[in-house]
Amino acid sequence: MSFLQLERVSVGFMRYEGIFRQHELGLLEDLSFGVGRGEIVALIGASGGGKSLLAHAIFGILPRNAVVNGTIRIDGSVLDDTHRNRVRGRRMALVPQSLSHLDPMTRCRKQIGWAGQRAGHPLDRRKTEALLARYGLDERAANAFPHELSGGMARRMMIAIATVGDPDLVVADEPTSGLDTEATGGILRHLRSLADAGKAVLLITHSLAEVLPFADRVAVMRGGRLEAIEPSDRFAGAGETLASPYARALWIALPQNAFTPGGAEC
């Protein structure tokens, strides 16, 4: 069994219809797949399709009116509230989507320190420097407030924070959106090296072309459902080996390929 295992996971929100009647608005339905140690699984879907909800569901940080069904397993054990409290930050870590996930009033050095304490890995100055150096961040970045960081630095800072507790699973939520090609490559290489070090990496993204060189498998979502899971080496040529017609359409629609938009809308 994979390190992270999703079994028929669905996420929805309770909405009020009028004053008394509630109904559930489903956004993710019936997701089943796994992410093993040493691999990057890229979860591809349209923006606004609820991909981030899956990450939030795994970490238990959905709004209160959210409803999660199905089973999530970490290393074989069901991830319920008590288990989640034990593994959050320690065995699994999140790389969040935007700068707004860092406390605007606190210097980055302090936030890394807090993350270390929360993960049960208190950091001294030397360890912090070493961790930051691994992601190309210097003294100035450490002492900066989040708003003073560039987009790429902020993402690297968040990867550094996520890896503080040496987790087995890293979930990266759109870690490359808004970055230029060079910074994107840097971030994805960092995630690749985490996978190569034996961690399971779930990479949530909307950009197939960017992640193909780095991912092992690609989970393609369409309208809140999982359409297919394809090994990334099948995205080649005209996509003849791809099992799912939708994945093939997505592949062909890329600018560097035939660029035919036939049926690729999610």
Binding site: I61, S100, H101, A119
Partner: peptide, 14 residues
């Protein structure tokens, strides 16, 4: 407590 950084702190195990 609803802000992104509070949620992220929770995700860090806080």
């Amino acid at each position: 407590m609803q802000s992104d950084f509070a949620l992220y702190a929770r995700a860090q195990g806080a």
